[in-house]
Design a protein around this nucleic acid. Sequence first.
DNA 1: CTTCTTTCTTAATATACCTTAAGTTTTTCC
DNA 2: GGAAAAACTTAAGGTATATTAAGAAAGAAG
Lengths: 195, 195
Amino acid sequence: MTNNEYITLLINHIKKDVLLTESDIIALTKIIEIRELNKKEFLIQPNETSNSMNFIAKGCMRSFYLDEDAQEHTLQLGIEEWWINDLYSYLSRKKSRMYVQALEPTILVQLPRLKLEQLYLEVPAISHFFRIKIQNAYVAIQERVIDSMSDEAYDRYKDFIKSYRDIEQRVPQYIIASYLGVTPEFLSYLRKKHS
Amino acid sequence: MTNNEYITLLINHIKKDVLLTESDIIALTKIIEIRELNKKEFLIQPNETSNSMNFIAKGCMRSFYLDEDAQEHTLQLGIEEWWINDLYSYLSRKKSRMYVQALEPTILVQLPRLKLEQLYLEVPAISHFFRIKIQNAYVAIQERVIDSMSDEAYDRYKDFIKSYRDIEQRVPQYIIASYLGVTPEFLSYLRKKHS
DNA sequence: CTTCTTTCTTAATATACCTTAAGTTTTTCC
DNA sequence: GGAAAAACTTAAGGTATATTAAGAAAGAAG
């Protein structure tokens, strides 16, 4: 795929939620940056600040953090046409405590914050689009709090598969375990027991 | 306290984050509604839709939901000068699955959504203020996901006390237990063990 | 194709947390 | 102030999940 095709993917994605005129699209296209990541490469690391919105045009990404015992906890996963970020750092402009990492060779369509905020003034539809996205992110994370309170790990695993059907096949089990908050050994045990 | 004092409390609260002119304050005041709740009374119940932003002028509130086993899970707590809501329902305009309940006799300063959205057009500072609030809510809930992944319940309890120092004394232990995701018996055991 | 590395599984032992039940303390309300 | 209700504690026995360690399978690299 060419860069233009990646940009078209983003534009069609946005058009699912809001109307864009030709001039909106031109203004949007002007601020786009394409970023390629190798497998395992980091987009964001602790103490960096997120300065862009990142649309996955190709590949697979995750965000995670390390606890005091250096255990990984995966917070978010994404594949083609999902957004990935440390939204905390992006919104608050504070330093991230997280890693955002490519799990496969990945191509991102990026919108840098400063230019994007300028664009909001010119193209209200884009502002509206991101308001919706941030609301959805809020809803999703609240869903995650609720799911994580279901103390049966197998129920959480079923919830995970429901929300991430397409992703489950593409990421290693140990990352799913770190998303669910169990050890890989226990996830392996659960999968055997219920199959 | 009189209604005017409750309104002043809200205005001063907003002024901590954004500048308000006299005419902004007048426009804001026009849309305000005061709501009194008895102890244990519900502001929101499942299948209702949240249609206002709710500022606690006096009292103590919580939001919680019931899981399939009818267990309560407390998601948010708040006292004077905190906001309480099912922000999911408010933002998405969908039916809530949660309860929002007064834990003490409570007085809310409410801003109804339709009028508030009109006000955003007239008074950008108010729009800006709520953008900040919703970003903060996002940050807080992400914090909560991260905290809830610390699998040592006593660590979560210490985190809870750090973020809710003023609230801990005012709410029953069993609600704290339902916030932490443990049984009241186990919380009681932990408190004894670590004291 | 072969070797090295990463990921996944199995199983034994250990522990955090739950369930139940009963007793105690605190709060509510007439 | 006293009775009833609500909240808190204690303890015994049970279950879900962690830890450790070792081997098997799958993937990456030369």
